[in-house]
Simulated scan of single mutants.
Amino acid sequence: MKRRSRSGTPTFSQEAAQLSLAEIEADIQRCLWGFENGGTRQGRKAYFKRLVWLGPARNPVWR
C-alpha cells in the first residue's frame, strides 16, 4: 500500500501524467517569471521549488 503525503497533494508522477507538454512549458514560463519578479523571498522560493519539480516532467521518460 502506497503511503500518502500528509498534505494530500498528488505525487509528482500522478500530476505530471495529467499535464500536456504545452501545459508544462506554460507553467515553467510562469514560474520563471515569478522567480525573477517575485516580491518576497518565500514567493521566489516557492516558484523555484516548482521549477525544480517541473524540470524532469519535460523528459519524455515520464510521458
Rank of each mutant, 00 (worst) to 15 (best):
35 F>P: 00
27 D>S: 10
23 E>F: 04
5 S>P: 12
5 S>R: 15
14 Q>H: 08
60 P>W: 11
63 R>F: 08
7 S>P: 02
43 G>P: 04
32 L>F: 06
3 R>L: 15
16 A>S: 15
29 Q>C: 01
48 F>I: 00
56 P>W: 00
48 F>V: 01
40 T>S: 15
60 P>N: 08
54 L>R: 01
23 E>H: 05
15 E>V: 12
32 L>P: 01
2 K>P: 12
3 R>V: 15
1 M>I: 11
2 K>W: 10
58 R>E: 06
34 G>N: 03
23 E>V: 07
49 K>F: 07
5 S>E: 15
54 L>V: 05
59 N>P: 00
8 G>M: 03
63 R>C: 02
21 L>E: 14
16 A>E: 04
1 M>P: 03
50 R>W: 01
35 F>A: 13
50 R>S: 07
49 K>G: 07
58 R>V: 02
33 W>D: 14
45 K>S: 12
47 Y>F: 14
46 A>M: 09
48 F>Q: 11
15 E>M: 10
12 F>N: 01
18 Q>A: 10
46 A>V: 06
20 S>G: 03
16 A>V: 15
3 R>I: 12
5 S>M: 13
59 N>H: 13
46 A>I: 07
50 R>A: 07
33 W>A: 14
18 Q>R: 08
28 I>F: 05
16 A>G: 13
32 L>G: 04
23 E>G: 02
48 F>K: 09
55 G>F: 12
36 E>Q: 12
39 G>V: 10
30 R>T: 12
25 E>R: 13
53 W>R: 15
15 E>F: 08
42 Q>L: 11
41 R>P: 05
52 V>W: 02
26 A>I: 03
19 L>V: 11
24 I>P: 03
19 L>T: 08
29 Q>N: 14
21 L>C: 07
22 A>C: 00
60 P>E: 08
5 S>K: 14
12 F>H: 05
61 V>A: 10
51 L>V: 05
7 S>W: 04
6 R>K: 10
19 L>W: 14
25 E>F: 01
60 P>T: 08
2 K>T: 15
57 A>W: 00
27 D>Y: 03
35 F>W: 09
57 A>H: 00
36 E>I: 02
45 K>Q: 10
16 A>R: 06
43 G>F: 09
27 D>K: 09
31 C>K: 09
18 Q>M: 08
2 K>E: 14
51 L>A: 03
28 I>E: 05
46 A>E: 10
6 R>W: 08
50 R>L: 07
